[in-house]
């Protein structure tokens, strides 16, 4: 079975995620898009692991999942705190740290 469809699907998911990060204002949605990009990456990794017949890609995918989980914990906590103090989850509102 050819791996091209898997890679195309991975590219499509990554593009959707990237566009979502760049265009959406809601921090939660941006966050979900980041997750989408990570999982697109995972899909590509597993596909390559199958092509080469080694476990390297699969192990890398596990690492990505662990990092994603940790990131969710920290990221959601930050979003929660910002929402509590500013009553807004928009990423454009949190723009105080600048020149």
């Amino acid at each position: 079975m050819s791996e091209t469809p898997f890679l195309v699907l991975s590219a499509i998911l990554f593009t959707i995620g990237a566009v979502g990060v760049l265009t959406r204002r809601n921090a939660i949605v941006v966050f979900m898009c980041v997750e989408l990009m990570l999982n697109a990456g995972n899909l590509a990794l597993i596909t390559f692991a199958r092509t080469t017949g080694t476990l390297d890609g699969q192990i890398a995918a596990f690492f990505v999942m662990v990092v994603a989980a940790a990131e969710v914990v920290v990221g959601l906590a930050i979003i929660m705190t910002i929402f509590r103090t500013r009553r807004s989850a928009s990423v454009d509102d949190a723009s105080l740290l600048k020149y």
């Binding site: 990060v21 760049l22 941006v30 990423v91 454009d92 949190a94 723009s95 105080l96 740290l97 600048k98």
Partner: peptide, 10 residues
């Protein structure tokens, strides 16, 4: 450094 996260992401 304009403070907008999305421009940094871009």
């Amino acid at each position: 450094q304009n403070g907008f996260v999305r421009s940094y992401a871009l």
